[in-house]
């Protein structure tokens, strides 16, 4: 059983607009009409759960939800066929807004809320449920930002518990939450480099810096480290190899980049859970991420399109 943990899920609200102007003079109102909009459950682990479910893989999504928006998240996940196991909190699940300007979808504007503050007793409830889930977990995905009130050491604690229970851990996080989980030796580490452009205090702008940072994480005990290089390429570092995985596609084809990175990781997990080789899993993952980025729908559900995109993926040893 695959278990995903999203401590700070969201309702993803996306608006497609013709243009987005900021008003610089005082007036009563300044209206931008949306051409279309969508509402869906979001958050890194949640996106991975939805992707896996669309490929027919049973999985359980866990985390915190609250209020009206919490019901939106749970309802959407159930409609997608994901098994839900969320702790209800006193607060309200956050809403993340994406503005996509038609013709410039490759450069979306994101407004992310920080999320509801989690109380100590709510964290205790989650840990009890998590402990129960570990009795049937083979893979555990710990993904996304931490909501206010949660100790940055939590992913390390959860990763150690999962390893002790015999499950493999995938960690996709950034900042202190990531740094403090590395000594728990997750199986796969994918640093969130959107805000935290450094790992272990080192900038991640050049290939050499990425490889050095990845080797440091592997030395801490991780089997595979995947670091985004640019929007169409990632670098994967293992004990024996360093790979550059690249998608040959113009960025002008991108219709919706939100969640594409999570689909990449979901694709890697999909293949590894079926005992595929790491190389094969990486290629499939990037093809799935590419297929999602090229579709208006946040998460691609079409296996035929993913298989077709495999032709656009190259993998070279560095």
């Amino acid at each position: 059983m695959i278990v995903t943990v999203t401590l700070n899920p969201a309702v993803d609200k996306m608006y497609w607009v013709e243009g987005l102007k900021m008003c610089d003079v005082t007036q009563e109102e300044f209206l931008t009409r949306a051409i279309r909009s969508t509402t869906s459950a979001g958050g890194k682990g949640v996106n991975i759960s939805v992707f896996l479910s669309r490929l027919g893989i049973e999985n359980v999504a866990m985390g915190f939800v609250g209020g009206h928006t919490g019901h939106v998240v749970v309802r959407d996940l159930r409609d997608e066929g994901v098994t839900t196991n969320f702790v209800w909190t006193h607060g309200e699940t956050r809403v993340n807004v994406t503005l996509l300007q038609v013709g410039r979808e490759h450069s979306p504007n994101l407004i992310d809320e920080s999320g509801q503050t989690i109380l100590p007793e709510e964290m205790d409830r989650l840990m009890r449920r998590y402990r129960r889930m570990l009795t049937r977990a083979t893979w555990v995905v710990l993904a996304g930002s931490l909501p206010p009130g949660v100790d940055p050491g939590i992913y390390g604690e959860m990763a150690r518990m999962a390893k002790d229970a015999g499950a493999k851990v995938i960690l996709s996080a950034g900042g202190e939450a990531l740094a403090r989980a590395l000594d728990a030796s997750p199986y796969i580490v994918k640093p969130d480099t959107r805000e935290h452009l450094a790992l272990d205090g080192k900038g991640l702008t050049s290939v050499d810096a990425i490889v050095d940072a990845g080797k440091h994480v592997v030395a801490c005990g991780a089997e595979i480290v995947i670091i985004s290089h640019d929007v169409t390429g990632d670098i994967a570092i293992t004990r024996d190899d360093v790979w550059e995985i690249r998608a040959s596609t113009p960025t002008s084809r991108f219709k919706n980049l939100v969640g594409a990175d999570d689909v990449f990781l979901g694709g890697v997990l999909y293949k590894l859970s079926q005992d595929a080789l790491v190389k094969e899993a990486l290629r499939f993952g990037l093809a799935a991420g590419l297929a999602s980025a090229e579709s208006e729908e946040k998460i691609c559900r079409n296996m035929a399109v993913i298989e077709e995109r495999m032709q656009n993926i190259s993998l070279a040893r560095l």
Partner: peptide, 25 residues
């Protein structure tokens, strides 16, 4: 079936149960 694992353990207080029933509807 509805694939949801919301459940409680026997040692939680009544107050917490009411909170869960209310919020999870």
């Amino acid at each position: 079936m509805t694939k949801d694992l919301t459940a409680v353990e026997k040692d939680i207080p009544v107050r917490e149960l009411i909170f869960i029933l209310n919020n999870a509807e």
